[in-house]
């Protein structure tokens, strides 16, 4: 089912959490609301769910105006970061909750709960209490509970945020597969660009209560609308006064036209990657990422002079310092490392 958010504004006291936000979500898509924390992602998701009301604007779910509908009438499933398990009910009863509310026949409820327990790989755990499950299992239970009532829309607020890295990765892949199976329109909130790029069909970048850009992961990565989006989605560096991705820079051992000369300041090898910092007179050093093979072919060592130029088809933007401040945590020049691991493998 489609979701349309039109001109939604939400304030808390004098603070504007959402400022005239409009987003259209395609039926059957898996959409990420991505942005720095405090940007208003959860507020937007909660407004879609009816857990919060917009000051102005319209929310349409499946073509019908839902702006004033209470949450229980919206047909949405909501999954919270901290699971919101009902601790006094068994896992099966948790999952059955929505069906029992709807007074479905006992047989039907049991069959559906069994089916969902299988779907989320918790067949063995139906009789346990939530306190006896691990975090990842609890979140799968919460997902099954939300799916039980066959919501037209599934909303997840940082669903994997409370889990450790390994489980988070597993659940992320699993959510992607689940969505391919179940096809329910899904919106999830994350502040992790890797998660959004890997899992989502569509990403809405939100910052300071505004939508910065909407598009597919590839579109956002390759054609960022502004320097904020570019630096939030992955590492960036500056070359010749322009913002560019470190792997979009070619390093040459000989001088060519339009290339910028520099001196290798630092080389760091991580796995198959070589992260090279090149000092260029006057400007901050340029961060470049090469493959190991490329570095070998180049043969450059610290202190050598090299020439830098943009690779063909590289995305660049004019440097806009204001937007860069406080954006991607690892986007600072020379600090490329951490974010590269994730950003180097966007989903195909």
């Amino acid at each position: 089912m489609s979701i349309e958010i039109r001109d939604v504004t939400k304030t808390f006291g004098s603070f504007t959490a959402l400022d005239d936000v409009s987003v259209a979500i395609r039926p059957g898509s898996l959409t990420a609301l991505l942005g720095p924390s405090g940007g208003g992602k959860s507020t937007l998701l909660r407004i879609i769910a009816g857990l919060e009301t917009a000051d102005s604007g319209v929310v349409t779910i499946d073509g019908a105006d839902a702006t004033r509908l209470p949450p229980q009438k919206r047909g949405v499933g909501f999954v919270f970061q901290h699971y919101a398990a009902f601790p006094h009910m068994s896992v099966a009863r948790n999952i059955a909750f929505g069906l029992e509310i709807r007074k479905r026949p006992k047989e039907e409820v049991r069959a559906r709960v069994d089916e969902l327990l299988r779907l989320v790989h918790l067949e063995q755990f139906g009789d346990r209490m939530p306190s006896q499950l691990s975090g990842g299992q609890r979140q799968r239970m919460a997902l099954a509970r939300a799916l039980a009532v066959e919501p037209s829309v599934l909303l997840l607020d940082e669903p994997f945020g409370a889990l450790d890295a390994k489980v988070r990765k597993e659940l992320r892949d699993w959510l992607r597969r689940l969505h391919d199976e179940v096809h329910v329109t899904t919106v999830f909130v994350t502040h992790d660009q890797e998660e959004a790029l890997e899992v989502a069909d569509e990403i809405v970048v939100i910052s300071q209560g505004r939508v910065e850009q909407t598009g597919s992961p590839d579109a956002l990565y390759d054609r960022p609308a502004n320097s904020f989006v570019m630096s939030f989605l992955g590492p960036v560096t500056q070359l010749d006064g322009r913002l560019v991705r470190p792997h979009d820079i070619e390093v040459l051992g000989i001088e060519v036209r339009d290339a910028v000369a520099g001196v290798v300041a630092d080389v760091q090898r991580v796995g198959n990657e070589a992260r090279v910092r090149v000092g260029v007179g006057g400007a901050p050093p340029v961060a470049v990422v090469l493959t190991r093979a490329e570095l070998r072919a180049l043969g450059a060592r610290v202190g050598d002079t090299v020439w830098l130029r943009l690779a063909a088809g590289a995305a660049t933007l004019p440097v806009d310092d204001a937007a860069l401040a406080g954006s991607h945590p690892a986007a600072g020049v020379g600090e490329v490392g951490r974010a590269l691991a994730g950003a180097s493998s966007p989903r195909g």
């Binding site: 769910a49 009816g50 857990l51 209470p70 949450p71 229980q72 919206r74 949405v76 499933g77 909501f78 919270f80 901290h82 919101a84 398990a85 009902f86 601790p87 006094h88 909750f97 929505g98 509310i101 709807r102 919460a142 509970r145 939300a146 039980a148 009532v149």
Partner: peptide, 25 residues
């Protein structure tokens, strides 16, 4: 409030939410 909100999103009205979630808690 998250449990209560979860119950609301699962279709429970305010009274059912109180009786089945808040009161046991």
């Amino acid at each position: 409030t998250e449990q209560e909100q979860a119950a609301r999103s699962l279709g429970a009205g305010p009274w059912t939410t109180f009786r089945r979630i808040t009161l046991p808690a």
